[in-house]
Simulated assay, not measured.
Amino acid sequence: MKKLESLEQFEQLKQEEKVIFLFTADCRVIEPFLPTLETEFAEYEFVTIDRDEFIDLCSQLDIFGIPSFVAFSKGTETGRFVSKNRKTKEEIEEFINSLT
């Protein structure tokens, strides 16, 4: 999974056809099944964003719960799964399947 390195990279990546940003802070709970999600949803590019490194971006996007997911397509937000609650693999799959 690609890791965000800069705000400029974020702006470029969100212009792609299908990208999902995973906002995290060393989330060990979902880490074991992330490779499966990447394989299962290969049409999406997954990018991790460390909350502590990009706190201003998190604030700008109203990301207050970790882990959180925000999807973009061609610069437009297409969905978000943002909450403070722990997320299961099934919940994340349901979110991705709901994206247009």
Rank of each mutant, 00 (worst) to 15 (best):
E43K: 13
P32V: 01
E38F: 08
Q60F: 04
I66S: 02
F46W: 12
L22M: 11
R51V: 06
D26E: 00
T100K: 05
I49Y: 04
D52G: 11
V70S: 09
F21Q: 05
Q60E: 04
T24P: 00
N97S: 09
V70W: 01
L4H: 15
L13S: 08
E43D: 15
L57E: 04
P67L: 09
L37I: 11
E11N: 09
L7V: 12
D26H: 09
A71C: 12
E91C: 05
P32Q: 01
F10A: 00
I63N: 15
T100D: 07
L22S: 03
T100I: 03
E94V: 09
K84D: 08
R28W: 05
I55K: 15
F41T: 05
I92R: 11
L57H: 02
E43V: 08
G65D: 14
T36C: 00
V29W: 05
N85I: 01
T88R: 12
Q15N: 10
L22W: 03
E53T: 06
E45A: 05
P32S: 05
C27M: 01
L99M: 09
S73W: 00
D56N: 10
P35D: 06
F95G: 09
V29E: 06
D26P: 02
E53Y: 04
S68Q: 13
F33G: 00
L13M: 09
I30G: 01
E93L: 07
C58G: 14
D62Q: 05
Q9P: 10
G65M: 10
V70G: 10
D56S: 14
S73K: 10
E5R: 02
E91R: 14
A25K: 06
E17D: 13
L37M: 00
F64H: 13
I20T: 08
G65A: 13
Q9T: 13
